[in-house]
Nucleic acid binder design. Structure first.
Lengths: 240, 240
DNA sequence: GTAGATGATGCGGGATCCTGCAGGACGCGC
DNA sequence: GCGCGTCCTGCAGGATCCCGCATCATCTAC
């Protein structure tokens, strides 16, 4: 077995290296990449079907890297090992995992035991292992209760990018009014009204801008999600 | 000498511990805190005047923690040890460092040598040590050329928080028109117009929302800056 | 088949935002 | 004093945004 480690922090990388060797005695080679782009290349060259991947790397996002790896080899098994369980990350990951692929999501705060267990479960048994905390996120994300539907998330991203209502309508093939409808939904769910009107007609928020900030603070959006959305937007803009 | 380490990542914490012991043989005790709040408390209890601090911690931001520590003992020497040199961080740090205080800013990507040198320079020699890369940021931040003045940064934060023009005017003691003037300045500097009008009257951006996103992507703003701004805003709102 | 729920769309109005134009206040240098 | 630059302010107008009201299509349930 060959395992590829994609992690930009040297300390974490060597820790992972040891953990992999300890948990998987049948693993004969461990390759290390220190950026997302390097990870993509090494995965291609070595045809390694077992990857441990950090999200949030400087050079290239873990999600981006995973997407291209999975695009080339959908049966690759990837264990995401991340500091955070931001809903933005969780949603980003579950959007790119191919049907039937074995993958995992373990937090860096997990114990050695749990990490090793996850390594064996995914790489040997081909099972999916999702951290409890992350799992909670996923429920909230996919389930309706208190969570955000895909359309709501979509429009959240669009206003976060700074598109006008008209531009969103064109992009999503909707009428202007529908876009505004969805915006209203979003504002309600994000609870932007509560703080909006203070007492009389005083100190109000700009709903659109406020929604983005609230989403950020709630980790519904984060830098990496913005980055991805921005590049998707650029692509769409090119296609007129 | 007593050194306090504030860092939430266990691997990085133990690495720092070793580095401190190696660089400072005269250091008899090393204390560790794994969150900003714990760091504040330990600094108070142990009266430790030498701190190594991570920015970007989950529980409490490094900048917040440093601010309260410095508020209680302005002669404390703090070395910030961070993964990033986001302008938002650099600006946040330089806003809170007291007059004449010795401090440092070293990136985690720096070599062992450089870290140890910085430790000695700051804790023994009371000199300021700023990483080259961070220094560049600082120049850009404080200098006018291509950088953002304080007033521009202020209004950027305000619209990022989602305030209306009127609310900003009240908060900053300006007229409505002045707020809008500053917004125009901001839009120009952030280059929001370039992509705004595509060809005819087509696909435009909402300038206000777009400005925030562009600032995010340029690391002028980040999560931690938003967090701080949000709590400042809450305070201001309480004072009617 | 009728009723109800959900979602897309159109119309219209009031509030906000963005900006051009013009004028006033302040400081700086000659 | 005078000119110049920078910053703040008011006014006006057009574009955009936010939202209530109403219609229509689809789908589900009974």
């Amino acid at each position: 077995m060959k395992v590829l480690i994609v992690e930009d922090d040297p300390l974490h990388r060597s820790y992972l290296h040891e953990a992999v060797c300890a948990a998987l005695p049948e693993c004969e080679t461990v390759i290390e990449a220190e950026s997302g782009t390097a990870g993509e290349k090494l995965a291609r060259d070595h045809r390694s079907a077992h990857v441990v991947m950090d999200l949030q790397m400087n050079n290239r996002n873990g999600i981006e890297a995973a997407r291209t790896i999975w695009k080339e080899r959908p049966d690759t098994r990837i264990l995401f090992w991340s500091n955070y369980s931001d809903e933005a990350y969780v949603r980003g990951v579950s959007r790119i995992v191919p049907d039937g692929a074995a993958y995992g999501y373990v937090l860096k705060s997990a114990s050695d035991e749990r990490l090793k267990l996850a390594l064996r479960s995914i790489f040997v048994e081909a099972q999916c292992v999702i951290d409890r905390e992350v799992r909670g996120m996923q429920q909230k994300s996919l389930g309706q209760t208190k969570g955000f539907s895909d359309t709501e998330y979509e429009i959240l991203v669009d206003i976060a990018l700074g598109l006008t209502d008209r531009a969103i309508a064109r992009r999503r093939n909707l009428s202007l009014r529908s876009v505004q409808n969805r915006l209203q939904q979003l504002y309600e769910k994000l609870d932007v009204y509560q703080t909006a009107s203070d007492d009389h007609d005083d100190s109000r928020f700009n709903l659109r801008a406020r929604a983005v900030t609230v989403a950020m603070l709630r980790k519904l959006l984060n830098y990496s999600a913005l980055e991805r959305a921005e590049s998707e937007l650029a692509e769409w803009l090119k296609s007129l």
